[in-house]
Write a protein that binds this DNA or RNA. Sequence first.
DNA 1: GCGTTCGGGCGAATTGATGT
DNA 2: ACATCAATTCGCCCGAACGC
Length: 279
Amino acid sequence: MFNVSNRPVVTEIDEARGVGLNTHAYGSPTTTARVNKDMKWAYMDGLSDAEREHRNKKDTWEYMPRLSNVQREKSILEFLRSAHHWSIKDFIQQLAHPEKVPYAHGAQVRIYQLRQAIIEQPEVLKIFMEDKQLIPSMLVEGVSAIVREELYTLMQEVPLLSKFHVDSSPKDLNVKDFYKEVGGKAPILWRLLQTISAQLEDDTVSNQQNGSFGLIAALLSHALAPRLSSGFQAYIGLYFHSLGARRRLIDLLHSLNISLSYDSILRYHNEIAKIAQVH
DNA sequence: GCGTTCGGGCGAATTGATGT
DNA sequence: ACATCAATTCGCCCGAACGC
C-alpha cells in the first residue's frame, strides 16, 4: 500500500542531487499558486480508503487556469510535499511499483507511461545520457544482470563453455559454429558486442568479428565462474600443449585467462592419456 | 664446468561451488 | 551465513637439458 508517513521522505542526498523539493515550502504557509481557496488538496490526509473513495466520488478538483508550466510544476511538487510528504522520487517509485494500487492505473499502464515519459522523450533521455552517475548505475547494473544470466545459460547449454571433462570428445564441440550457439543463447550479449564493434554503416559484422565475440563470451563466462566454465580454456591449453608449447607460453595464456594453468593442463593431459591406454 | 632454463611432481594454501 | 568439499593455484623442489 502507500508508504505514507508523517516524516519528510526527501533525504539530504536527494536534496544534494536536486531530486528533492524545496523544504522551505514544506514549512511555510501555502501560496495562492499551489492551493485552492478551500485548502482542498490536504483534505485526504489521514482518511481511510473508504472515506477517500467516498470523497473522491463526491468532490472534484478545481482546475487552476492560466498557470505557466513552471508554475504548475512548482505547484504539483509543493502539493506532493505538503499534502503527502512525498518527493518526486517517491511518486515515481510508487508509479513503478508492480503492486496494484487503488485509484490508479494498473501496473502495466503506469510502467508504460513511465517509459513514455522518460525513455521516449528525447530531451529527458538526453539528460539521462549526460548524467555521469545515472549511466553506470542504471544501464550497467541492468545490462550486466541480463548478461550474467545469459552467461550462466551458456555454461549450461554450450559444451565449450561448460565445465571441462576429460572423457568428453572434442569432436562433439562443433567449434566451427560455436559463435552461432553463443549468439542464439545469449542474444543481449551478442547484440551488445555487435553494437560496440560495428564498423560499417549498415552494422553488418564480419565472420572474424563473430569469432572474437565467441572468445569474449568464453572469457566472460570463465571470469564469472571459472570452475563451471573451463571447457574453452582447457581445450586451448591442451591444444597448445599437444603442439609442444612450453610451460611459459601456457602460463602466459593462463594469465590472460585464455588457457588453464600449466599444472591443470598437464593433469588433464595425463588423465586423458590414462583413458586412452584403457581403451 | 657452471649457471640457467625447462618439464614434471608434490604438498599446502586458496578459492569456488554447493549443501545446510 | 556458514561449513564442507573439491578444484585449482602457488611455491618449491629435483633432475635433465641447454648454452655460453
